[in-house]
Design a protein around this nucleic acid. Structure first.
Lengths: 213, 213, 213, 213
DNA sequence: CCCTAAACGAGACGGTACGTCTAGTCTTATG
DNA sequence: CATAAGACTAGACGTACCGTCTCGTTTAGGG
């Protein structure tokens, strides 16, 4: 996984002292640690600098906001490379994927960081974009193929709206993670998958008629 | 709708000058205005005090955090008591309810405040509780009856998991509102409702077997 | 000693509930205690009210500032009614008077309060006036008679400037008390008195010639 | 005159951005102006910061209390380096010195600041020490030499107590300045000097016998 | 092998908002 | 009316971080 920042695509940068890789790693490590210990809210650039034994400028030179720094630290540590899943049936593909996600985030530091980053992204537009690129798109591309395979196999109608199906899969899970009103259990995963698959097979996810919005 | 704060359930408080209702309203009004104009993030107690022409202490005396203040201001203005819906069919009940919600929040100041409050609640535990009480529970109670009527009518199996069905209805909508990856359209609502109803009728929302989690 | 405040010489005050003497005493007692414990600087009207179990209004109704309140508390407790002194000789009169003053203030809580009140009076003009009336004038009247008796006895010239002599007696003592650069000892008192008496006898305290200032 | 603060004797402080001399001067200038205009009591750090166009931290970084800041501002402006006086006679030396002091402080902003600083020093021990070092000791060293020269010339006894004589000279003047009961005139100065000189010549300032205190 | 230019640590800088404190005033219900 | 209680506006306090800006020092490559 490469850097998410826009910085990284800047000029060749030949002359002068090159940026130190050690500094970069020290900052990310310190950020990850403070993020896990105290959360994004209580994370300050000043604490990161002092923990990483680094000047504040060295952080600002690389990352534009604490949200983006935290995102990168989050990704560099918990890189959720869920292995590609292909069991041969839509239900078990989805079940396995969603289960893995739930295990990663339910009640874990990873989950808390993820929640904090979503919250922060509501406020920081740059982070919102980076988050969308790095997490949402990546995950959706993985899941999309599972559903497309089901279409090819004829399990569900060919004109099913893949985006809607994915939102119906992950939306309820994110909902419980963020609102915390009910627990994220294995049983919940199974029921969600069952409803989605049943609905999809019944052709309910097919766009109805006009949708001028 | 009464106050959400824990303050309100304190002692009778007979002696001394009573708290001024005017002051209370002035603070809530100023908060609501600033919340709509600049968002929760940029909302400061100091600005609220100065706009409401009120001492800061008068705010701190009543509300423990800016999140809870904002929640109460939000509720006092946009009291989202959607009128009870009863069309006679589950699909159209859900459609109408979810449509109304989408119209209230998609691209509106109300929606932005709602998102900001959810984000803030991830950080402020007191706000999280108040939010859950005042918004989540209230809304779920309204929706629950729609589904229970469908069970009574025999539209869906009697052992359907109502909580799961509600999360599958609102989860995807909240997901798009918060992640912003795709728009919250009328068509989206229809498809979500269709999948949920189809899945429920197929008995997919019934708890499978053991659920030891 | 009667009240120093301007309040107290107001109208007869016939109608309504009469002011409670208990309240008055409670306030003065609490003030005196806090004054001794923490000094005038750290004394707050709020603390006095709470210690005396009295409303703040009851204090503000009686005293215009904390300085004047403190002055009255100071006087009501440590009423420095040095008994009139008349030994028959100027030197021993002055020695006894100044010694008594030094014993009362050097290193004592009384001295600390006195110093604090002088400091406060530099800032609070009302207190400055009250202080001048209640302390300075009273003391000077006592001392003036000692010097006037010496004139009558022929010990010192009849046109000696009594005010200058008194300032030369107490000025050095106040100086050491306030600046703290050197201790206020019995020996110091003796030397000061000796110089003043010698100077006065030599006719040095007689106004020279023109003094248009 | 160098800085009075304890700060100034700290480590060499090579690393990091050096403190700006301009900032220092701007703060002192603003303080001096506000001190003269409104007095020490009404002086707030916030006003100094805003007038000097400086962050509050830049003030707190340098000075521990508003008293010490005010002292330094006072000294940096009105550096009372009275030129050394040596007329050949004790009486005229003292007369000239005390007259100069009176002219500097009687009814002037300098005098008001001086009075305010003495008052503040009664409350702030750190200021008391700094004041003693910077003002009292400096002044006394100047005056001491005048009296010592008189001893060498044989004008007054060799065992005269120089400290007592100085207190008798300045004590009465400070007394009138602080208590304000009588004006600080040229005639007053002459009489005080006359009494002190006469007393000293008469050997009255010589320590009597034992002085165990 | 020096020269140049950027990166580095440290920490000062002008700001903003915090949550607390006290001042002096006002508004209740009670005596 | 005075009283106790306590809410009211106002505004300074000292602290914490923000993101920027100097400093003196280090570390490379290019000349």
């Amino acid at each position: 996984m490469e850097s998410v920042t826009s910085e990284s695509i800047s000029k060749p940068n030949k002359r002068g002292r090159p940026r130190s890789e050690e500094v970069e790693q020290a900052i990310l490590k310190a950020t990850a640690r403070l993020l896990a210990e105290r959360g994004l809210q209580a994370l300050t650039i000043e604490d990161v600098a002092s923990l990483a034994k680094v000047g504040k400028t060295s952080i600002y030179r690389r990352w534009p906001s604490k949200g983006i720094l935290a995102l990168e630290a989050f990704l560099s540590e918990f890189l959720l490379l869920q292995p590609p899943i292909d069991t041969g049936s839509l239900a078990s593909d989805l079940n396995e994927a969603l289960s893995a996600w739930v295990r990663t985030v339910a009640g874990t530091p990873t989950g808390r960081s993820l929640v904090a980053l979503i919250a922060e992204a509501q406020t920081d537009p740059e982070l919102a974009i980076a988050w969308s690129e790095a997490v949402i798109k990546t995950a959706r591309n993985q899941h999309r193929s599972m559903i497309e395979r089901a279409i090819l196999r004829g399990e569900i109608p060919g004109d099913s709206d893949v985006d809607v199906l994915m939102d119906m899969l992950y939306g309820p899970a994110y909902h419980r993670l963020l609102q915390g009103h009910l627990p994220l259990t294995e049983g919940f995963v199974q029921q969600v998958v069952a409803v989605v698959v049943a609905g999809a097979k019944a052709g309910a996810a097919v766009p109805l008629h006009v949708d001028k919005d």
